[in-house]
Design a binder for these strands. Structure first.
Length: 666
DNA sequence: CTAGGGTTAG
């Protein structure tokens, strides 16, 4: 291979062949298309230098494009070293470099190169291909000033009539967090199309403005006549009628992407039910969901634990020939079954895609086992990964650490935490430290947990402090608990669970005065406890039980009657209600009676009435279990001889014969 | 050759 340093000499001696005809270039260029690694590329490059093909603009543009855009390791650096030696770079070569940099860690280079290109090229034709990348670079590197300059340039050159360019301007302002600016561009852009609408919807979703997103979604037109007219006008003025034609084709109503953006918007904003409602509406209108839609839908189902819906979607996949190894379908399906409590089905899916598993499939499986408390099994899957030489990523380790945490595998957790850094060179993020704090705290190694928290290279977040706080509840440390609560409340004054945990710490230590203080503090600040809510699936229908909910009197009467019966029977078996838990409730006094009855107890009573003997009762709860309900359900599982499976905020609990799969370790 | 939607995370 010819060293790069010799290139300039070769250039001058080969100058005569710089006008090679196109057909000569083809064999080598087609070799470039098939090129898979840098070493193959070096050979092709050497060949091009030997034959003088490097002076062929088209050929060298393919070379640069391959290096900068294929994502091959070291490719961009190589492209950057070749680029300055190209005597007459055209707009395609500039484009390849600009896009390559925009997607890299050094996206500012993209902006620099763009300005160089403008002064280098004689005309603007072809420049527009690079603008989307520059705009992306501005957004990514949070370069607001540069962003406005490029935007200004777009307006001056009339590239705003190019839909790719204008849509990228919208996207850029959204990336910069400037939703208002994005909306202004959106409202005034002459070539607004379905992509513009979809970007804007996603922008609102990311800003947490889900209702504004929905408003826009509902407004989406058949065809945007205003845009159409302005666009004809614009393109007419520059005589580009064929562009106008092309655009007309693109101007359709809501497409599958719009629906997916909206559905995923609900899921991301923790409103999975509305996501599912929209999905059903989409189906009823005869619009075909694709893999991306299904992934979001599965995520909504997983959140809700609606396994029946999940099974339906699973069946839909096979009838519509959507492959389990396409995109994130496999991991979403595994995750859905796991989060619905069907870990065996999750494993079956995982097994069935053994030939082409993506990293996400492995990660979903490991995290799935983790929330079922199957720590050993999760670690076995991780071993398989290593055996098959599959490189775990940072999310894999979150799953592994969480598996250790839920399984009480302290030493293993510490081992994997260092393995991750030493063998896999993964720099632990705040969530990894959070896992370690949780792992150590839960196991009662409170001082070590605090050490991790204090020595981590970033500021501790609410979750880390809450992990300490829950450890203090579990192991009864008032002083540390107060300290942790102080930090947690400072970081998230609106988060009721911080106050509730603190109140828990006091209650456990019998400090009722302080419990009352926490309660009044919450009242003063207007922080309301999230009401407990449990759902049970029976005969394909989801029944929700909310503390203080309005239930049909008859219905409620029947369920509450059953609950009374259960409590009586359990008391004969030695059940004593844990009164410390009741004092946690900080709702208004007049609801006190309802509050005595936690939603999971009602759900159990309902299940005992409605589910056939022998059928397990599946319950999904929105909050963490309280210890009274936990011991209550353990007893029910024995006295009534029932399998009861409860998913709380963190994990699954399998109750059978008086004990729980979490071994009281949660 | 350029723009829009997607999973796994204490």
């Amino acid at each position: 291979m010819v060293p790069i340093s010799e290139l300039p000499t070769l250039y001058s001696s080969m100058a005569a062949v710089s006008v090679l005809p196109h057909f000569t270039a083809n064999p080598t260029v087609s070799l470039l298309e098939k090129c898979k690694s840098m070493s193959e590329l070096h050979q092709i490059h050497a060949h091009m230098i030997k034959t003088g093909l490097v002076h062929h603009t088209f050929a060298v543009s393919r070379l640069v494009a391959f290096c900068s855009l294929s994502g091959v390791c070291g490719g961009l650096d190589y492209a950057a070293s070749v680029f300055p030696r190209i005597q007459q770079p055209n707009c395609f070569i500039f484009f390849a470099m600009i896009k390559g940099f925009a997607d890299s860690a050094s996206s500012l280079n993209s902006i620099l190169l763009y300005s160089q290109m403008l002064s280098y090229l004689d005309e603007f034709d072809g420049v527009q291909f690079s603008i989307p990348s520059v705009l992306k670079a501005c957004g990514r590197s949070r370069a607001f000033g540069e962003a406005q300059q490029v935007h200004g340039h777009v307006l001056k050159t009339n590239f705003q009539y190019d839909p790719f360019v204008s849509n990228s301007v919208v996207r850029m302002y959204l990336d910069l967090g400037e939703v208002g600016m994005a909306r202004r561009v959106f409202d005034t852009m002459p070539c607004r199309d379905v992509v513009s609408w979809n970007s804007m919807i996603k922008g609102y979703v990311e800003a947490g403005e889900i209702d504004l997103a929905r408003a826009l979604f509902d407004e989406m037109p058949e065809k945007d006549l205003f845009s159409w007219n302005t666009m004809i006008d614009g393109y007419g003025k520059c005589g580009k009628c064929e562009h106008a034609q092309e655009l007309f084709q693109m101007m359709k109503h809501k497409d599958v992407v719009s629906w997916t953006a909206m559905i995923s918007g609900y899921v991301l904003n923790h409103r999975p039910k509305e996501g599912l409602v929209l999905f059903r509406e989409m189906l009823s209108l005869g619009i075909q969901p694709d893999a991306a839609t299904i992934v979001s839908v599965l995520s909504a189902i997983a959140d809700l634990g609606f396994v029946e819906e999940g099974k339906w979607v699973h069946a839909y996949l096979s009838t519509n020939k959507i492959r389990l190894d396409s995109g994130f379908i496999g991991s979403a399906l595994i995750d859905m079954y796991a989060k619905c409590g069907y870990i065996e089905d999750a494993y079956r899916i995982f097994k069935s895609i053994s030939h082409r598993r993506s990293i996400g499939d492995w990660n979903s499986m490991i995290s799935g086992l983790a929330i079922h408390g199957l720590g050993e099994e999760a670690l076995e899957i991780f071993n398989d990964m290593e055996r098959y030489d599959i490189k775990p990523n940072e999310i894999t380790f979150l799953g592994v650490l969480s598996a250790c945490s839920h399984g009480g595998l302290v030493q293993e957790g510490q081992y994997f935490f260092s393995l991750m850094q030493e063998s896999y060179k993964i720099v632990p993020g705040i969530q990894h430290y959070g896992c370690m704090v949780d792992l150590l705290g839960r196991a009662g190694h409170l001082q070590e947990a605090i050490n991790v928290l204090q020595e981590m290279p970033m500021e501790a977040d609410v979750l880390a402090w809450k992990a300490i706080l829950s450890a203090c509840v579990k192991h009864g440390h008032v002083a540390i608990g107060e300290h942790a609560a102080l930090h947690a409340i400072e970081l998230a004054p609106e988060d009721s669970s911080c106050y509730v945990l603190l109140s828990n710490v006091y209650a456990k230590a019998g400090k009722w005065d302080n419990v009352a203080k926490v309660r009044s503090m919450m009242r003063q600040r207007g922080v309301r406890k999230i009401p407990g809510c449990s759902s049970v699936l029976s005969n394909g229908v989801v029944h929700q039980f909310l503390v203080g909910m309005e239930m049909d009197m008859m219905y409620r009467g029947r369920v509450l009657l059953k609950l009374e019966e259960v409590i009586c029977r359990l008391k004969l078996e030695g059940y004593e209600p844990d009164l410390t838990q009741i004092l946690l409730d900080v709702e208004e006094e007049d609801k006190e009676n309802l509050l005595r009855v936690h939603s999971e107890k009602i759900a159990v009573a309902f299940g005992l009435i409605n589910m056939k003997q022998g059928a397990p009762i599946h319950i999904v709860k929105n909050l963490r279990f309280c210890s009274d309900c936990h011991s209550f359900i353990k007893l029910v599982s024995m006295v009534y001889n029932r399998k009861i499976i409860v998913r709380d905020q963190n994990r699954f609990h399998y109750f059978q014969n008086g004990s729980c799969s979490c071994k009281d370790y949660w």
